[in-house]
Simulated scan of single mutants.
Amino acid sequence: MAKEIERKFLVKGDAWRQLAEGSLYRQGYIASQGTTVRVRIVKNQGYLTIKGPTVNYSRSEFEYPIPLADAQEMLDTLCVRPLIEKTRYKINVNDLVWEVDEFAGVNKGLILAEVELTDESQQIELPDWIGEEVSGNPKYYNSYLVKHPFSEW
């Protein structure tokens, strides 16, 4: 079984911006109660992802590339509105890849950083631009932001 182990943090300041170029992500959710089913487009590739419920920092995750036209049609016809729009920056720090998501649209102003781990007990050194940890707080899940956009908090 595929397993995702990740921790999530708020981002402070702008020091991270000079460390990487971003890629535009557009994604939507077909289902998001317990198990989430997500459709995503990154650059010119579509993806279908199924994630199980989060326990501690872990959850089951299965992701598959799908044709771009299929992903676009699913985003247009099957996904709950609003879609998630964000720019993702991948930043290498101490042998870990930090993914910084700068949200746009109705979630503009929210900036989150995630780091995937190999083990839940893995020790990590936090970069200076990392703020409060929000791992496990469903308020910061992308699937929550669809129903409760950051602009409404």
Rank of each mutant, 00 (worst) to 15 (best):
W153L: 11
S32E: 03
P53D: 07
R17T: 08
R7W: 09
H148W: 04
V146P: 01
K86E: 05
E125R: 09
V37P: 00
K3H: 12
N56I: 11
A20D: 06
G22D: 00
P138E: 13
L75N: 02
I41T: 03
V55N: 06
P67D: 13
S135G: 06
Q45G: 03
V11M: 07
D14K: 09
S58G: 14
T54E: 00
F103W: 10
D119T: 15
R38F: 11
L19F: 03
V115W: 00
Y141F: 13
T77P: 09
S58Q: 15
T35W: 04
E6K: 13
I124E: 07
G28S: 10
G136T: 11
L83P: 01
L78S: 07
S135F: 07
L48N: 04
L117T: 12
A113V: 03
S135W: 06
E99D: 10
N94G: 14
L96Q: 05
C79R: 02
D119P: 07
T54V: 15
V37N: 00
E125D: 06
S32Q: 03
A2G: 07
G46W: 04
P149L: 12
A15N: 09
V97G: 04
L117I: 15
V100T: 06
V106L: 15
Y89Q: 05
Y140G: 08
F62C: 13
Y144W: 14
V97Y: 01
T87I: 07
V115F: 02
G22L: 11
Q33A: 15
A20L: 03
Q27K: 09
M74C: 12
L10M: 04
P67M: 15
D76A: 12
N44M: 14
A71C: 13
H148C: 07
R17G: 00
W129G: 07
K3Q: 13
V100C: 04
V93A: 04
T49N: 08
D101H: 13
N92S: 08
E132Q: 08
K51R: 14
F103R: 12
L19Y: 05
K51G: 02
Y89D: 12
R26G: 00
G13D: 05
D119S: 15
Q72F: 01
D101K: 14
L19V: 01
D101N: 15
P149C: 07
G34T: 09
L48H: 08
D14S: 09
Q45I: 11
V93D: 05
